[in-house]
C-alpha cells in the first residue's frame, strides 16, 4: 500500500540464484512427474468418455481390475494382522536373532521385484522344493492366484511393520506399565492399551501396502502366469496392451489405476494431517 513496499522477508541478496534454483526444481518435477501423468490421462480420454468405458468394460480388462483390487485387499488385510504382530514381537520381545531379523525386514524393499518373482517360482513352482509338495496335493501356487498374493505379500512385507514399530518404540511404555500394575494380563493389556495406540499406524501401513500392491508388476509378471481372465492383473494388462500397441486400452486402465492410487495417497495424507492435529493439538 505505502510507497515503500515490504521487502523480502528472507535475507537474500541474489534473488536470481534462488529463482534459478526454483525454476530448475519446478522444471524437473514438472517434466518428470506432472507432464507424463497428464499425457497419459489425456490419452485415456482422447477418444471420449464412451471409448474410455468401452475399453474398461472389455471382460479381460474388467476381470484384471477385479483381480488386482481383490488381491491387493487380501494382501493389505494379511499385512495388517501379521505385520502388526511382527512389529510387536520385534519391539517387545528379546529372542536370539532378533537384531538380524529386524535389519532384514527391509529386504523386500531392496531386492528387485523381478528377483522376488524368480525366488518364489524357484521355491513354490511345480518343481520347487515346497511347490512340488503342494503340487502333489493338487494345489498350485505359481501361475495361479495364490502366487499373486504370495508375491504381493513379499513385496509389501515391511510397510505395516515399519509404520507400527516407531509408534510402539516411542509410545506408551508407561501406560503399559501402569496397566500391568493395575493387574492387567498381557493380552488385556495388548488389546486395551497397545492396540488402540498402534491401530492408526497399522492402518496407514496397510493402506500403503494396498497402494503398492495395486501397481506391482515385476514379481507378478513372473509368478502369475498372466492367463487372461484368471491370473492377469491390471499392470500386466497395461503391459500387454502396450506391447500390442493398443495405447487407448493401456491408457484407460492406467487412468483407473492412477485414480485409485491418488485417492489412496490423498486419504493417507488426510489421515496423517488429522493425526498430527490430534496429537499436536
Amino acid at each position: 500500500m505505502s510507497a515503500a513496499r515490504p521487502r523480502r522477508a528472507e535475507p537474500l541478496r541474489r534473488p536470481w540464484g534462488l529463482w534459478g534454483l526454483r525454476g530448475a526444481v519446478l522444471t524437473y518435477l514438472a517434466l518428470m512427474i506432472a507432464v507424463p501423468l497428464l499425457a497419459v490421462i489425456e490419452r485415456g480420454f482422447s477418444a471420449g468418455l464412451r471409448a474410455f468405458w468401452r475399453e474398461l468394460a472389455n471382460p479381460i480388462a474388467f476381470d484384471a481390475l477385479k483381480l488386482t483390487v481383490a488381491a491387493a485387499a487380501i494382501t493389505a488385510a494379511v499385512n495388517l494382522v501379521l505385520g502388526t504382530l511382527t512389529a510387536y514381537v520385534l519391539a517387545r520381545y528379546r529372542f536370539p536373532g532378533r537384531g538380524v531379523f529386524d535389519s532384514l525386514v527391509d529386504m523386500p524393499f531392496a531386492i528387485p521385484t523381478l528377483v522376488t518373482g524368480v525366488m518364489l517360482v524357484v521355491l513354490y513352482g511345480p518343481s520347487g522344493a515346497l511347490g512340488s509338495w503342494f503340487h502333489a496335493k493338487g494345489i498350485s501356487i505359481i501361475f495361479a492366484r495364490p502366487g499373486i498374493v504370495l508375491a504381493l505379500l513379499f513385496v509389501t512385507y515391511p510397510f505395516v511393520i515399519r509404520s507400527v514399530q516407531p509408534v510402539l518404540l516411542e509410545a506408551e511404555r508407561y501406560e503399559e506399565e501402569a496397566a500391568f500394575t493395575l493387574g492387567a494380563n498381557r493380552w488385556t493389556n495388548f488389546r486395551r492399551i497397545v492396540l488402540p495406540a498402534i491401530l492408526p499406524a497399522a492402518g496407514s501401513g496397510a493402506l500403503l501396502s494396498f497402494a503398492r500392491a495395486l501397481g506391482e508388476f515385476g514379481s507378478i509378471v513372473v509368478v502369475a502366469g498372466n492367463i487372461p481372465r484368471r491370473t492377469l492383473t491390471s499392470p500386466v494388462y497395461v503391459f500387454g496392451e502396450v506391447e500390442a500397441h493398443n495405447e487407448r486400452g493401456a491408457s484407460a486402465m492406467s487412468v483407473v489405476l492412477l485414480a485409485l492410487s491418488f485417492g489412496l495417497l490423498l486419504l493417507l495424507d488426510w489421515r496423517q494431517r488429522r493425526r498430527a492435529e490430534v496429537l499436536g493439538g
Binding site: 512427474i33 501397481g215 515385476g218 492410487s261 495417497l265
Partner: peptide, 28 residues
Amino acid sequence: GMVDLPFAVSPVIAGFMLIVLFGRTGWL
C-alpha cells in the same frame, strides 16, 4: 504432494507414460 506420486504409480504405467509422451503423436 506431487513428489510422492512416483511411489503410487505402477512402474508399468511410468514406462507407458514415456511411450505416450515420446511416441509418434506424443507431446514431447
